[in-house]
Amino acid sequence: MKARLTPWKLGTRRLREGAVRIVIVGLFIMFVLVPLYWVIVTSIKPSKDYLTVPPVWFPAEPTLVHYTAALFSYRGLQGLINSLIISSAATLLSAVLGTMMAYSLARFRTGGQHLAFWVLSQRFLPPVAIVLPIFLLFRGWGLYDTHIGLILAYTFMTLPLSVWMMYAYFRQLPKSLEDAALVDGLSHWQAFRLVAVPLAAPGIAAAAVFIFISVWTEFFFALILTSRYAFTLPTIFRAFLGFQGAQYGEACALATTSLVPSIVLGMLVQRHLVRGLTLGALRG
């Protein structure tokens, strides 16, 4: 066993550790912020500031011209509206269906572990494996490039998230109030709707925000399942591939338009982040 540390040694060690902490966190924050700052500042730069050495970090004449161009010339506005409609509808559907299933799984152990595992396994399916056949089927069913089609696909995509987050939530809620309601003559549905759902409301709200963010930021399904009608905001970035036209400002304006809402929403549910990221497997 080592000799005990003197208070003096302990003190310098604390100081050194503190300095190391600040350096690690500080460097990473810079790593996170600098590219983000670059995107946001490029979105308000006049075009003449793009191609300069050294790069312009603080534009002298900020402008909003790229926002109007992105929204109106690149169909950003329609993408934004589509994204809002599709994300909201898929969130609502996924939260409702997911909560119902989670309640059954948590309270009645429906299907045992297998059913729960089956739902979870959907979360790990590579999208490329199912999007091909979904694409073929959607063309046959007339769901290709429709809002409904993408809403259904996203509801399916986020069900593992909503089911597992709410499954974990219901398991930690006491059952006694629902039991009392059943004794009082309420049906199972009434006990669920009138007792369990209000109790679980904070959990449902948090799950809904995570669902919304994952739909809002999704790209692959939207890329394959839509083209010129039901396209979402992320798919518009294809127009800027390679920056051949040097549309830096438009690309950054669109990026800012998309990332600000999801970051704001994310901040709102930061407390639940651990549950959201691990589908409720871990409590923060």
Partner: peptide, 15 residues
């Protein structure tokens, strides 16, 4: 620190 988690991977690639 957690901001990147809420950004679309497409935007990350583009940025």
């Amino acid at each position: 620190l957690v901001m990147p988690l809420f950004i679309s991977p497409v935007i990350v690639g583009q940025s």
